[in-house]
Write a protein that binds this DNA or RNA. Structure first.
Lengths: 196, 196
DNA sequence: GTCTATAGGCAGATAGAC
DNA sequence: GTCTATCTGCCTATAGAC
């Protein structure tokens, strides 16, 4: 009962639009690209874009929704695949490293900067993304206390907030240098502080 | 031999333009405001704005220049006024807290997000700002080893990079919540990790 | 679903009067 | 220095043919 002949990746126009728009948001910001940019890259017209996403705000909502879903999936996979909390945290940092390695900023970090200019639905989605990350991190930190792979003195929630802030900031500051080194330095110090 | 009757603050039109534009960059981003926004707020026309700053790129350059100069002054004042490295670091974090308390993002953090869309002169200025901050931090960290008010294992440069990243990220993530609490949590954890 | 054509608005920017 | 008037271009968005 397959709806389509695709293997796993969805090549529909809507998905290809999201792919291009996603890269543009992550590199230039939501206010830094236009429908014309996407259309030109895909070889279609802006009118076609409006068929799939009637307004830019709708495109924005779809972008965060898909991004957050993927990220959520990655977190669950980390939970399933890795045993100790220390390894989970390292894998979490690697998620960010992968994004930066693709010359991109975290989508929600980028949108956090532009927050004041965003339509309301996008704002709520950004908040939810951060909330989910903090919750997941706090859980991993609790685990780390139990399995003794992590050491820290402050409350889980504060440390979780610190980790999220540090990784988002590390991407933000490293971006302009076009170099992974500053990011890696920061991650090294961060993880060192959480080991005995 | 006073050039003007002002007390200390410069109320010239150019300065008032910079004041408004500065707030707009820090809250909405460089791509998130227009000459019309500034003009409306000051009760002048956009043509007048172009008299003072011929192009938006020129305004942008002036904005970073003034911001970086002020920040640099604040760092030197910290060096003069405070004795131990621990206190200097706390004062440094307070600089960021003050910006966030004014419902703003660090200007260069904001511009780092928009980096790809910026004219070249603004890009270099953003890089220089971060460089100066890292250098200053590394110096304070060295001091902290000597006066024994700071403890850390990683190289000064890496820790400096980590501090800068953490503070920028803490502002970025806290912004959307309109609340100082997440920022303060992060700073608390950060400073705790640098104390014995 | 994709196109052509176009509307309507706002962007950054300039000329020239006062 | 500040204005009015205007230009050009780009932006989001829509109508309607294919």
């Amino acid at each position: 009962m397959m709806a389509r002949t695709r293997t796993s990746r969805d090549d529909s126009t809507a998905e290809r639009i999201l792919d291009v728009a996603e890269r543009l948001v992550q590199t230039r910001g939501f206010n830094g690209f236009s429908y014309a940019d996407i259309a030109a890259e895909l070889g279609i017209t802006t009118a076609s874009l409006h068929y799939h996403f009637p307004a830019k705000a709708a495109l924005g909502r779809a972008l965060i929704a898909r991004y957050a879903e993927r990220f959520s999936g990655a977190l669950h996979r980390i939970d399933q695949d890795l045993a100790d909390a220390r390894a989970k945290l390292a894998a979490y940092a690697d998620l960010y490293a992968g994004v930066l390695g693709g010359k991109r900023m975290c989508m929600c970090g980028m949108l956090a900067a532009e927050y004041e200019t965003l339509p309301q639905p996008m704002r709520s989605a950004v908040i939810r993304f951060f909330d989910e990350n903090r919750t997941w991190l706090a859980h991993v930190l609790s685990e780390g206390l139990q399995d003794k792979t992590l050491t820290f003195a402050s409350p889980e929630e504060e440390v979780a907030q610190g980790i999220l802030s540090t990784l988002e900031g590390a991407m933000l500051v490293a971006g302009p240098y076009g170099d992974m080194a500053p990011f890696k330095s920061t991650v090294r110090v961060l993880l060192a502080n959480l080991s005995s």
